[in-house]
Simulated scan of single mutants.
Amino acid sequence: MKSSKKHIAEYEFSIGLRLTHWIRAISIVVLSISGFYIAYVFVSPAITGEPINFMNAKWRAVHQVAGFILIGCFIFKTYLFFFDKQSHIERVSVKNVLSPKIWIEQIKYYLFLGKHPHIQGTYNPLQFASYIFFYIVLFVICLTGLILYVNVYHEGLGGLLYTPMRAIEAWMGGLANVRQIHHIAMWIIFIFMVVHIYMAIFNAIKGKDGAMDAIISGYKFPKEK
């Protein structure tokens, strides 16, 4: 027997959160492609006697611009989480993480052994924990990226950040270790993105509440209580 409950429109994500999500996603794609080129050159310019190609410099410039955009998104999203009124539904999600009962019910839901638990806020405990981990890794990759940046550019912003970044570089065991940590963080983000996309599609299909619509339009469509 079909349920008589209707779906209602519920505003979930603010325009600021949606913009940072998609700008961050595009930045990560650009950083991945340009980062692979910097680490493993897979395209070479036409051979010429004139110093006009500078392909490596162009890829590095693209990587740096995308990197600073990513840092900007990280800072703005952090601000939204703590101070944005609409982001209150994200902050409330912390309560779900502290409930062992909801953890168990959520895992059972993903294993097709039970119904989705009633949660507070917008994220279930697995989502919230994975997002916190993602932002920690994002912080690490931005930090190591800045360390690599100041080792090449010593004026302007590079000069301003040079001394603190060199101190952090020493704590990490040197520039070679920093570069290795940067690469490891990149692979962790790759894995997160694959799992994130899969779970977003899974929840959208199984939940049938327009969960994926929310990150585009801001609205999801749960059933009336």
Results as ranks from 00 to 15, higher is better:
F134C: 01
F134T: 01
F134M: 03
I136Y: 01
V137C: 05
V137D: 05
L138S: 07
L138D: 00
F139E: 06
F139D: 03
I141P: 01
I141M: 12
C142H: 01
L143H: 01
L143W: 02
L143N: 05
T144N: 05
G145Y: 00
L146G: 07
L146N: 08
L146I: 07
I147Y: 00
L148N: 06
Y149F: 13
V150A: 11
V150C: 13
N151C: 09
V152S: 14
Y153H: 15
Y153L: 13
H154Q: 13
H154Y: 14
H154R: 14
E155F: 11
G156M: 11
L157H: 12
G158R: 09
G158N: 12
G158H: 07
L160R: 15
L161I: 08
Y162E: 15
T163F: 05
T163K: 14
P164V: 03
P164M: 05
R166F: 02
R166T: 06
R166M: 13
R166N: 15
I168S: 08
E169V: 02
E169Q: 14
A170N: 13
M172P: 06
M172C: 02
M172Q: 06
G173M: 01
G174V: 04
L175G: 06
L175I: 13
A176P: 00
A176G: 11
A176Q: 12
A176W: 00
N177C: 02
V178D: 05
V178E: 08
R179Q: 10
Q180E: 10
Q180V: 01
I184R: 03
A185K: 01
M186R: 01
W187P: 03
W187R: 05
W187E: 09
W187A: 10
I188H: 00
F190L: 06
I191T: 10
I191C: 07
I191V: 09
F192Y: 05
F192C: 04
M193G: 07
M193R: 04
M193Q: 09
M193P: 01
M193V: 10
V194T: 07
V194D: 06
V195P: 03
H196R: 04
H196K: 06
H196Y: 03
I197A: 08
I197Q: 08
I197S: 07
M199V: 11
A200M: 06
A200I: 04
I201N: 07
